Amino acid sequence: MPARYFKTNGHLLVCQGQHCQARGSALLHRALWNHLERQALAYYKAGGSVRLTESGCLGACSFGPTLCVYRAAEGGLEEGWYAAVDFPLATRIAQAVHDGAALPTEQKYGPE
């Protein structure tokens, strides 16, 4: 039986390094996972398109929880790096990825 292909609009990675975990990243990942499922945004749900993965250190250890986004964009790959992410911001980022909308600018850091 061939593997099933799921189309995605983007990928969210939530840091699980020790500093981010001390600031609640494990809880953030779990809450965001549940939100993606309930709202049918998860890539494996009908109509969903967002992947969510736990990640190693994303480099903003003093400002966690940290989240980064990768998604295809015209001319290449778009990145969004976020520090001090709370659940409301994480859900806005996920919705923007799903909708193909502009990423939120609050708490953003790193490459443009």
Rank of each mutant, 00 (worst) to 15 (best):
M1D: 13
M1Y: 08
M1L: 12
R4H: 12
Y5K: 13
K7C: 02
K7N: 09
T8A: 11
L12T: 03
L13H: 09
V14G: 00
C15M: 03
Q16N: 08
Q16A: 05
Q16G: 02
Q16C: 00
G17F: 01
Q18L: 12
H19I: 07
C20N: 09
C20G: 07
R23V: 10
S25I: 11
S25G: 05
A26Y: 02
L27G: 14
L27P: 06
L27Y: 01
R30E: 15
R30N: 13
R30I: 08
R30S: 15
A31M: 12
A31V: 07
L32V: 09
L32K: 06
L32A: 02
W33A: 15
W33T: 14
N34I: 04
H35W: 15
E37V: 11
E37F: 01
E37R: 13
E37M: 11
R38I: 03
R38A: 15
R38C: 01
A40I: 02
L41S: 02
Y44Q: 11
K45Q: 14
A46K: 14
G48E: 01
G48Y: 00
G48M: 00
G48K: 00
R51D: 05
R51Y: 02
L52K: 03
L52Q: 06
S55W: 02
S55K: 04
S55C: 08
S55Q: 06
C57S: 01
L58Y: 00
G59K: 02
G59T: 05
C61K: 06
C61T: 07
S62Q: 12
F63V: 08
F63P: 03
T66S: 15
L67H: 02
C68V: 11
C68Q: 12
C68L: 11
C68K: 10
V69R: 02
V69K: 00
V69N: 01
Y70G: 09
Y70H: 09
R71M: 04
R71L: 04
A72D: 10
E74N: 07
E74C: 03
G75K: 07
G75M: 08
G80W: 01
W81T: 08
W81D: 11
Y82H: 07
Y82S: 07
Y82A: 05
A83I: 09
A83E: 12
A84I: 03
V85I: 03
F87E: 15
F87K: 12
P88C: 06
L89Y: 04
L89W: 02
T91Y: 00
R92P: 13
R92L: 09
R92T: 14
I93Q: 04
I93L: 01
A96E: 12
A96S: 15
A96L: 12
H98I: 08
D99V: 06
G100M: 06
G100C: 06
G100D: 09
A101I: 10
A101T: 11
A101Y: 05
A102C: 06
A102E: 14
L103T: 08
P104H: 04
T105L: 14
T105E: 15
E106F: 01
E106R: 12
E106I: 08
E106G: 02
E106V: 14
Q107S: 13
Q107M: 13
K108I: 11
Y109K: 13
Y109G: 05
Y109M: 10
G110F: 00
G110R: 01
P111H: 07
E112I: 07
